[in-house]
Amino acid sequence: MTRLVLALGLVFLWAPVALLAGFAFSDARQPFLWGGFSLRWFQALARNERLLEAAFLSLSVAAGAATLAVLAGGVLGWVLARQGRFAGRPLFGALAAAPLVLPEVVTGLSLLLLFVVLEQFTGWPQGRGVATVLLAHASLGAAYVGVLVQARLAALGRVLEDAAADLGASPLAIFRTVTLPLILPSLAGGWGLAFLLSLDDVVLASFTGGPGATTLPVLLFSQLRMGPTPEANALAFILLAVAVPLGGLFCWWRGGK
């Protein structure tokens, strides 16, 4: 019974995705009509400069936002796990977790309004663009990194750090030789998560991005509102073709442990 539901669930999850990937090879101009085998939409995709530009922008924003998120989120997680009680700690904790639970439209609107008001008073940021999208994504990503780092530090306890301190290591040396290596897996995982969150986001990027900062999901969304395109099918196939070997590699790596 549960295996039947698992099978049906897999059909439900795969049906729309398999449809995209399959019809990526159809010659027809209509995106979901079979017109014989052809690779023309992959060629069209390779020549679609607007889409390639958006994809490159998305990858850069995602990499930048994830890096900033790891730096900020690492500090957030460390403060939450290691600073004990301090004045304003409940507020600090609530603000650190807020991006995880706020609906995207609320986060997007609130960050955009902040940028507008900030510009009015300080002259920065001048309009909205890549920098504001990057900050918005970093703010969301940092919350996820913070949770991961906090959980990791809490699970590890203070024993190793205390031992290093007893042996005379300075706080900076403790951080560099004990804490950092221990939380490195969380930072790496958090970087990946923040990268994927940024790469998949429509709402924050729509609010905080300007006309010069159209990320790939924003472009795909605006195109899809006009109707699906065969080039999007080709893109879906490529994404799957990249994810399958990566997923396989990950399974094999995890299986080896």
């Binding site: 795969w14 729309p16 449809l19 790469l199 795909l220 799957l240 997923g247 990950f250």
Partner: peptide, 26 residues
Amino acid sequence: RMAVLGLVLLPFTVGFVLRMAGWVGL
């Protein structure tokens, strides 16, 4: 088990907007 879990999670790698494009196509 890991392979089947991969099968469950793989459709999500296509991204949110394109998955919805798939539903439009269906």
